[in-house]
Amino acid sequence: MPKRILVVEDNDLNRKLFCDVLKANGFEVLPVADGQQVIASAKKFAPDGVVLDIQLPNISGLDLIAAFRADRALQAIPILAVTAYAGKGDEEKIRAAGARDYLAKPVSITPFMTAVRKLLGSSPELAGSPPPHAV
């Protein structure tokens, strides 16, 4: 059974890229563009991991991480934070909020997939992806 990833990204192109790459690697994906729908979507979808943009309209990714950590049903789900606005001390703040890992945009496909697999604590086979030669 494929691992499930919730992709939270307000930029249409980035969201499509993340979802396409994850699907091509055997993951089941639910894209969410509106940060205010994230918690409800996560409860319904029950993801194995979350790829979360930190810079969202109407709600901060840091606030969403805190909401995941405060919710008993969601607190154990690992979060990979991604942001285009990486300033000094941002990575520490994001990790302190409860994100398991962090990537600065622009994100290349190989480091992105490496971070997702690390986030889920799995090898490609366990993540539901095809063998490396088929990617």
Rank of each mutant, 00 (worst) to 15 (best):
I77E: 12
D10V: 04
Q55R: 06
G87Y: 08
L52E: 03
L22C: 01
A70S: 15
V50I: 14
L80P: 07
V32E: 03
V7R: 00
F68Q: 12
I39C: 09
A96V: 00
A81M: 03
A73C: 06
C19G: 01
V116S: 04
G49K: 08
K23V: 15
D63E: 15
R15E: 08
D10N: 15
V51M: 05
L22N: 02
V21T: 06
V50P: 02
V7L: 00
L126W: 00
A33W: 00
D71A: 11
V38R: 00
G61S: 09
L30V: 02
L126C: 03
D90R: 03
A42F: 10
L126V: 03
A115T: 02
P2T: 13
R69D: 05
Y85C: 03
G61A: 10
V135G: 08
G89H: 08
P78W: 02
N11K: 01
D53P: 02
G121S: 06
L62V: 13
G61H: 06
F68C: 09
A40V: 11
V7N: 04
P132A: 14
L6M: 04
E91P: 01
G61R: 06
L119S: 04
P47N: 09
A24Y: 04
Q37M: 11
V50L: 05
A67G: 01
L56D: 07
D48F: 09
N14G: 08
P78I: 04
P57Q: 13
D90N: 04
A84P: 03
Y85R: 05
I54D: 01
R72L: 13
E125L: 11
K88Y: 07
V51E: 01
L13G: 02
V82T: 04
Y85H: 13
D10F: 12
Q37L: 14
H133R: 12
T114Y: 02
T114R: 12
V8I: 14
F112N: 09
